[in-house]
Design a protein around this nucleic acid. Structure first.
Lengths: 117, 117
DNA sequence: AGCAATATATCACTTACGGATATATCTAGT
DNA sequence: ACTAGATATATCCGTAAGTGATATATTGCT
């Protein structure tokens, strides 16, 4: 029994801005909830401001769909750390590729915009 | 009395993928509902597949928040045309700029990813 | 001591979205 | 002429997602 019976990453697309930002800030290093919330609010993190309800509700759903998992590690009994899973990385990459295509369309349309008349 | 008492475009961010795709396909030329739905499903339109419930529900909300409006024009009594408003264009640009920053972070993280170890 | 920030949890409310159904017209194939 | 599929919009209901408030406890600052 292979450990992964995950669906096609593309079937979860498009991701909501909240979910994409959480995956983005978790890409590279694991973090605890509050740190995720703070980094997601920064421009580099997507500028996505969310309250605790959105954060922990989203983390729950993301764990249930296999995008992230708790690490078990703790440097402070108040903190719970989360990491992105392999499947989560695949979904994140797929969404990044989708957004890259969208941004190409945006640039192309901006050119036509400037060229008209 | 100026015609626009619209809020700061940034206050509506981030946009959902559905709303962003609808604005994207309307950028440049006005279209009727069904055409929006078909184009949004194409890769260039964002690859966002939506049923009629999502489409017309979203158009309603977007009209109420001033992002789009009906043109009144019709080349076919079955079709209702929509166009993006000036305010809608501002919101769309703001979201495109946000996504561009996000994509910069994605690229930067991808480099670190490849460079690690 | 008191206040703000850190850190998580939870609940109630609203909004957004998905999927199905319905209706009507038009077009293409047989 | 019949039929199937595409076009085009409308509406409804259930679920998922996000918002905002409240709660609790700890830490750090002044």
């Amino acid at each position: 029994m292979g450990k992964a019976d995950n669906p096609d990453p593309n079937s979860l697309l498009p991701l909501s801005p909240v979910v994409f930002s959480i995956l983005l800030v978790l890409a590279g290093s694991e973090k605890h909830g509050y740190a995720i919330m703070k980094e997601a609010a920064l421009p580099e993190g997507g500028g996505v401001t969310m309250g605790p309800g959105t954060l922990y509700g989203s983390l729950d759903r993301m764990m249930r769909s296999g995008l992230v998992e708790e690490t078990g590690f703790t440097d402070n009994e108040r903190r719970r750390y989360y990491r992105i899973t392999k499947f989560g990385s695949e979904v994140f990459s797929a969404e990044a590729a989708r957004l890259a295509r969208v941004m190409n369309t945006v640039r192309r349309k901006a050119l036509l915009e400037g060229a008209r008349q």
